[in-house]
């Protein structure tokens, strides 16, 4: 195991915890998690492109309370571990494939954690309903332990998947470019869907259209 592996593992756990349990300062957003993972893996460019692409996927959903949403923190770390050291954009497609699998599994794992927390609450109902601080603290902090374990498992799984894909994914150069092209295209579709959902049907839709015009004009002017 290299130093980079341990740093990526630690970073994946921190980014995973940020999703719900700890702080929510948004270091688990793929733009941040991916960029930092790139620095840790020694390939800042891979971290940047994977982070930006995954951020488009993350624009799809608003992380409201009980909603189910993918965990893009460990996913971004796994994606960057897949793409690190691969020249140009050739690593992007496989990286996004790995990240989406990990993000999806992270979403399922979060449900397991929440169900575990519910079971813990039911087991300790007597103490909680008596207003026992020790019981409240114990159940509460055990929830964080569960989430840390989830983030650890997701990151480990992601790094293992990244190693497998790097070693055995049977893609030619043409195939790799194809996967990268599709990954960017679908990321843009997801971001556009998220933007339309965000803007609803009222005046916000006009603001969205105005933003698109300004952005497009900026691209043309560059």
């Amino acid at each position: 195991m290299t130093d980079a592996f341990w740093w990526l593992l630690l970073w994946g756990v921190v980014a995973g915890l940020d999703l719900v349990s700890l702080g929510q300062v948004m270091i688990g957003r793929p733009l941040v998690a991916g960029t930092v993972a790139g620095l840790l893996a020694g390939d800042a460019a891979a971290g940047a492109i994977v982070g930006v692409t995954l951020e488009l996927f993350a624009l799809d959903l608003l992380p409201v309370g009980g909603a189910r949403y993918p965990d893009y923190g460990p996913a971004a770390v796994a994606g960057v571990a897949t793409a690190a050291g691969v020249p140009g954009v050739l690593g992007l497609g496989p990286a996004i494939a790995v990240a989406l699998v990990v993000g999806c599994l992270g979403e399922e794992a979060m449900q397991i954690v929440r169900r575990g927390n519910s079971a813990d609450v039911r087991r300790n109902r007597a103490g909680l309903d008596a207003g026992d601080l020790v019981c409240i603290r114990r159940v509460h902090l055990r929830g964080m332990g569960r989430d840390a374990a989830r983030a650890l498992v997701m990151t480990l799984l992601g790094l293992a998947l990244a190693a497998v894909v790097r070693r055995w994914l049977p893609l030619s150069l043409r195939g790799t470019v194809l996967v990268g092209t599709v990954a960017v295209g679908v990321a843009l579709a997801v971001a556009a869907t998220g933007a339309l959902r965000l803007s609803g049907r009222g005046a916000a839709r006009v603001w969205l259209a105005a933003g698109l015009v300004v952005g497009a004009a900026w691209v043309v002017a560059r």
Binding site: V184, S199, W218, R222
Partner: peptide, 29 residues
């Protein structure tokens, strides 16, 4: 401001991401 900023970001990010791709890949995307 949120929909405006997201709207402005999408074309800029699309252009940045596709910079290293060829013309046919851009059409494909």
């Amino acid at each position: 401001a949120a929909p405006f900023a997201v709207g402005a970001a999408i074309p800029l990010v699309a252009s940045w991401l596709l910079e290293e791709f060829g013309a046919s890949e851009r059409v494909g995307a």
